[in-house]
Write a protein that binds this DNA or RNA. Sequence first.
DNA 1: GATAATAATGCAAATCATTTGCAAAAAGAA
DNA 2: TTCTTTTTGCAAATGATTTGCATTATTATC
Lengths: 143, 143
Amino acid sequence: MTDRRDNGGTDDLEAALRGAGLRITRQRRVILAILAGGDDHPDALALFRRAARQDPSISLSTVYRTMKVLEERGAIQRHTFEGGPARFEPADGVHHDHLIDLDSGEVIEFRSERIEKLQDEIARELGYEIVSHRLELYGRRRK
Amino acid sequence: MTDRRDNGGTDDLEAALRGAGLRITRQRRVILAILAGGDDHPDALALFRRAARQDPSISLSTVYRTMKVLEERGAIQRHTFEGGPARFEPADGVHHDHLIDLDSGEVIEFRSERIEKLQDEIARELGYEIVSHRLELYGRRRK
DNA sequence: GATAATAATGCAAATCATTTGCAAAAAGAA
DNA sequence: TTCTTTTTGCAAATGATTTGCATTATTATC
């Protein structure tokens, strides 16, 4: 059995993934724990570096491959903010949009029922059905 | 003097760019005309192919370089929709957001004063000042 | 219009983020 | 433990975009 320190509640996720036919490898377990543990939106390289601290043998390809699999299974969400590389966050189920701090790169999550509703209206008026959307605000702290 | 067929009103833009210290080269003139002429959102390669029809000597690097310069001067806008390469559109001055048809790749422009206002409110509440934003709806035609 | 100074071009090579082929290693089922 | 199949690490490939450099073209000037 692996160690029993708090893993941020990844056990059930692991079970779900295993149930979906995925193998829970040492590297996947490490990555899952990092995702569940952090509250930021790391990119593949950041994830790789953090993972490498726990398991120096892990490779960047594995991080990318794992991200792809997790995304397909709906376990994480991938965001590609202006400019930079893709950044990931565990899918908590509740949809939200993002405000990116242009100075620090920090990502703040928010949610607006009213905006969501307006988006639907607009799409409908144009004869479309929304499959997904992306709303990102880029700004700086007001002093 | 070059030919005098309709150029979609690029003359004033050319003048403005020249005034900003830019040289209006044969290739830039071609690219400008294409941008002004089409009402879609072509990517660099599409732009390159269209330009090559009028001037086979043009290179893809020049297209990229021109896009960068035009963007810096505010003459065009660059959009990077999910997945694909950057796509460009002449900056008409009026801000708008985009609805991308997932089946055809077609881009429909729209504008919602109410959404803009809500975005400002949200940013303000979070202690931020919006510098730019991006709102993209991805959907399919409702049948 | 000729000329000089400087910006822009084409090409190939470089870069960045990400993906992929492949042989070796590990996971899960039996 | 054994077998089958997935996953891994590594290196090489990819796709989009950028860049170095020698050459060419544009524009201000005479």
